[in-house]
Amino acid sequence: MRKFKDFVTDFGWPRVIIFFFLVGLFIAAPFVGVRIDTSFSDVFTRFGQNGILVLALVPMVQSGCGLNFGLPVGIIAGLLGGTIAMQLGFTGWLGFFGALVIAMPFAVLFGWLYGQLLNKVKGDEMTIAMYVGFAMVTFFSIMWLLLPFTSPAMVWGYAGQGLRTTITLDNFWGQVLNNFLAVRMGNNFFLPTGMILFVFLCAGLVYLFFRSKTGTAMTAVGSNPDFARAGGVSVDKMRTISVIISTMLGAVGILVYQQSYGFIQLYQGPLYMAFPAVAALLIGGASVNKATMVNVIVGTFLFQGILTMTPSVINSVLKTDMSEVIRIVLSNGMILYALTRKTKVSK
């Protein structure tokens, strides 16, 4: 009993409650006509889609820059990579990894500029970051029209210029990661092994990075900047590096998301992408100053699980289609809950 108590305290009551709620939903599902195997399949796919976007928040949390509400900055870099790779006609694996490679320089550049800005507004990073994200998305809404893309697969059919709001990846690199080593059972169960492995690979790399000298310094900066400075570490440099890495992971994250989703979404698409990621990380038990890989994985799984299951179960109970409304209420409610629950660090 004592051991159980310790485990719960360690794991955190909110997570235990959410976990049992999720289990409850899975148990309830068959009785209201929701297929369990489809549900599992959805949860795993959504976990894989969102995992790296959640992971992208970790470096900035660790360096004390707070939750990266400016995640759209990284997403835009990823979108640039994706659209350019498409324009160049890359397909399949070459397409996906080509998009990754092309996105990286943009991510580094954007991240560096974004980092410089955040270093000037210490203490208010999260608010500023949110508006940086909004501004970036809006600016690129103009750019998507103006940039000289010509590939017929991407531009508006009637004008011959300007990118469409959604571009299908069907003939490019849609599902390449998902189908790698995929497990299919019956008609309804599909496990996107490749994508999940890729998420774990990225999480592993981030984990190793935080065991390096730079990663250690970054954690110390987040924990106590004065200590780090007295230890000969440049606080601003570490923060900038963390923002760059966060932005790079954001770019990787959106490319993984899109190959699974099957479409590139431009214009207002990235506007609110930071919020579900933030909610997932906080539900995973991270604080504003500390986040671990366990927080990322547990948080993404629980958040996406609830987000997948609740609307379908409730929908079937109510027998009307209001899944989108429920999804919005739920995801914002979770963010609200998570932000009020955030644990403080001692000073």
Partner: peptide
Amino acid sequence: GVGLLLDEPLDWNIGFTTMQ
């Protein structure tokens, strides 16, 4: 304020500066 990483383990506190 300056001397310690309060939220980190002791070995970090002791070894951090020499590592960096």
